[in-house]
């Protein structure tokens, strides 16, 4: 099963490599990892998407907690949550395809943010499945480049991952 683990970690140099190193050393899957500072500059927030059965994910969260730099973490998949990912995608948009690309992008609530004679750059946010769906809706030969940020997640309601 797919799990979204949200981590508060000391904003120290090397903290990211401790997490990445843990995953490679123990052979855990890592689908995406995004990290940036929080409102408290001494803390970073990391969102990590991984897959595994319950035992594996239990081990993953325990091993993450064991890292001295990790302050707190939560497996968002355990409750109601929101996940978002942003994608910048450059597509070929020539002649007849220009309108088609534009309307397809609108259906997915994308924004065209750069235009040339033969290409668009579309900005799109959503959960990972939506971005996948958009990519699948475009024929491969029309895709020039895909850049995704990886997932960020947050719990719904009053629950929060804070100090």
């Amino acid at each position: 099963m797919r799990h979204i683990i949200s981590i508060l970690i000391e904003n120290e140099s090397g903290a990211l490599s401790r997490v990445a190193g843990l995953f490679s050393a123990r052979g855990y899957n890592i689908e995406s990892l995004s990290v940036a500072p929080t409102e408290d500059p001494s803390l970073s927030r990391m969102t990590l998407v991984t897959t595994g059965n319950d035992n594996e994910v239990e081990q993953i969260t325990k091993q993450l907690n064991k890292l001295v730099d990790v302050v707190k973490l939560v497996d968002l998949s355990g409750g109601e949550h929101i996940e978002r990912e942003m994608m910048l995608i450059k597509v070929r948009a020539e002649k007849a395809m220009r309108d088609e690309m534009k309307s397809l992008s609108e259906i997915f609530r994308g924004k065209i943010i750069d235009v040339t004679e033969n290409s668009y750059v579309i900005e799109m946010t959503g959960d990972s499945a939506k971005l996948d769906a958009f990519i699948n809706a475009i024929a491969d030969e029309h895709i020039v480049e895909v850049v995704r940020t990886g997932v960020s997640g947050i719990a719904r309601g009053n629950k929060a991952l804070t100090l």
């Binding site: 035992n55 239990e58 081990q59 325990k62 091993q63 907690n65 064991k66």
Partner: peptide, 11 residues
């Protein structure tokens, strides 16, 4: 003392 030792290899 180490939670990650528990149920790591054996349930």
């Amino acid at each position: 003392i180490d939670p990650s030792s528990i149920s790591k290899n054996v349930r």
